[in-house]
Simulated scan of single mutants.
Amino acid sequence: MRIGIVCYPTFGGSGVLATELGKALAQKGHQVHFITYQQPVRLNHFIPNLYYHEVQVPTYPLFDYPPYETALSSTLVDVIRNNKLQLLHVHYAIPHASAAYMAKKILEAEGIHIPVITTLHGTDITLVGRDKTYAPVVAFSINQSDAITAVSHNLRDETFKFFKIEKPIEVIHNFVDVERFNRKPIDAFRKVIAPEGERILLHASNFRKVKRVQDVVKIFHNIHKEVPSKLLFV
């Protein structure tokens, strides 16, 4: 298939998952096109069947905030039309789902039908999406998707709880490449981090405020009072 993937190109979970999914699909022989404002951080070497299209956002004195969503929609129209894409998969609803809807309607006027899958990842629903500034557009664009997925049962339930979603949401959990990430002996590493046999607590994230890193430190402090421990941030 010829598949378009829209995502944030940063170290956030939605962008990482989308990039790794696209790479895996390309390795299986599908033609995958990434559409975003800069090259995804996980897209760091050549892979056959994989393409990157940069969204150019012009700046004008009139705009305090350049209209990225409009630029993304226009780029989607061009990429879908010129590469005859058969499927568009958008990761993180804001603003990708609404941009995909706009592109889909433009292409429909030309007789081109492009199915859209929207994958919900977390804060696009539980935090940002629930803000009244975005909520109506988020709910509408999700409902206009041909298929909807969420990365956990809890996220699916939260979506139905806070938005009037009229379509089923399929849960597809985040995945791990077990050939790349497998268990290995860690005795030497453990001795460096915890030479006295302390317990090791690990927090892995992008350290944005929503990850509540300060709470992690407070929890570790309480645990360390009872059990000798070391805290590792990744």
Rank of each mutant, 00 (worst) to 15 (best):
C7K: 04
H121G: 04
P185Y: 08
V151H: 04
Y92F: 05
E158A: 12
I3M: 05
H224G: 06
T119S: 10
S145M: 07
A194T: 09
V90Y: 05
L85D: 05
N44H: 09
P66I: 13
E20C: 09
Q56L: 08
A147F: 09
N143D: 09
G122D: 00
L127G: 04
D124H: 07
R208I: 07
V77D: 08
E20W: 07
P67C: 15
I80W: 04
L120Y: 00
G13V: 10
K230E: 15
F181Q: 11
V138A: 04
I172W: 12
K28Y: 01
F11V: 10
V16G: 06
I125Q: 00
Y134N: 01
G4V: 04
E108F: 02
I186D: 10
F63W: 14
K218S: 06
R81Q: 15
V217W: 08
S73R: 11
F220M: 08
G29E: 02
R42A: 07
T36Y: 01
Q144D: 13
I3V: 15
F163Q: 12
F207K: 03
P9W: 11
T19Y: 03
H53S: 07
S141H: 07
E170Y: 07
F163W: 12
E110W: 12
K230D: 08
S152A: 13
T133K: 06
S229H: 06
Y52K: 03
I117F: 13
A150L: 12
L202W: 03
D131R: 12
K184L: 06
P61E: 15
Y68C: 08
P40F: 07
I219H: 10
Q86Y: 07
I5N: 00
V217M: 12
L87W: 14
V171K: 03
E54Q: 06
T126R: 01
H224F: 10
A139Q: 14
M1P: 03
I165M: 12
L202V: 04
H203A: 01
I3G: 02
H173E: 03
I112M: 09
V57I: 06
G22K: 01
Q39W: 02
T36W: 00
P67V: 15
I142R: 13
L201A: 00
R212K: 03
L120P: 00
E110A: 05
A71M: 14
K105H: 08
V32I: 10
V138R: 03
I94M: 09
I142S: 13
V176N: 10
K23D: 00
Q144K: 15
H91C: 11
L107R: 13
V192P: 07
N222P: 10
Q144E: 15
H224T: 02
S73T: 11
D124V: 11
E198R: 00
D64Y: 15
I80S: 06
K191C: 15
T119K: 05
V192F: 13
